[in-house]
Every structure is written in C-alpha cells, then in structure tokens.
Computed example of a mutant assay.
Amino acid sequence: MQSDSDQQNRQDEAMSAEFIPHLRFLKTLVAALAVAMVLGLAAIVVILWVRLGTAELPQLPDDVTLPDGATAKAVTFASDRLIVLTESDQVLVYDGKGALLQSVMLTQP
C-alpha cells in the first residue's frame, strides 16, 4: 500500500511540475489584462472629464418673443445667435439680446 501511495505522489509531483510554466503564463496574462482594463477605464474617465468639463452653455437672451401663433419645434445656438424652428417650418434667427434678425420660411421639396 505504501508503494502505491508513494508512486501516486511522484506522479502528482511530475504533473504539477509540467503545469507550473503554464500557470505562470496564465497568471502573467491575467495580470496584464487587469492592468489593460484599469488603464482603459482610466482613459475613459479622463476623456469624459475633459469633454464634459469644458462645455459652456451659451448666454441666453432674457426675452425672446415668437410671432403670434408660432410654437417652437427646435432651438439651437450659434456663437452669437439663437435659431428657432417653428411648427410651421419657419426659421427665426435672433441676436444675443433677443431681437429678431431674420425670418425664413422653409419649403418642402
């Protein structure tokens, strides 16, 4: 019985000696992937912080008056202008103080 047990132990030691280089490679691979994942997450956080931290909202005019019966469908901002698209496909361009500069009626092709 002792000899069977000793023989089994020697076989186990021989098998573990074979697998140790593979386990070292696997351990190194897992560590490298963990480092890459942490660096990628840090890069995403930095990119979001830079992109979202620099966005300044434009100064809105205190008062913008739409023509009678007009309802705003979309609003966008240019560097010094406010542009409003109404439900009737009319484009209204206002200056930075809220004065109407131009009105353009869009036509469907």
Score class of each variant (00 low, 15 high):
M1G: 10
Q2E: 06
S5I: 14
Q7G: 02
Q7N: 15
D12K: 02
A14S: 13
M15D: 06
S16L: 14
A17D: 13
E18W: 04
H22R: 09
R24D: 03
R24P: 00
F25T: 04
F25H: 07
L26P: 00
T28G: 06
L29D: 11
V30Y: 10
L33G: 03
L33E: 04
L33C: 09
V35Y: 05
A36K: 07
M37I: 04
M37F: 07
L39G: 04
G40L: 03
A42W: 01
V45Q: 10
V46I: 07
I47L: 14
L48H: 15
L48A: 14
V50H: 01
A55P: 00
L57Q: 09
P58S: 10
L60V: 03
L60Q: 06
T65C: 05
A70I: 00
A70P: 07
A70H: 12
A70R: 08
A74N: 12
T76K: 11
F77M: 06
F77H: 12
D80T: 09
L82N: 03
I83F: 09
I83N: 02
V84D: 04
L85R: 05
S88T: 14
Q90G: 10
V91E: 12
V91A: 14
V93Y: 03
G96Y: 02
A99D: 12
L100Q: 15
Q102R: 13
M105G: 05
L106K: 12
T107M: 01
P109H: 15
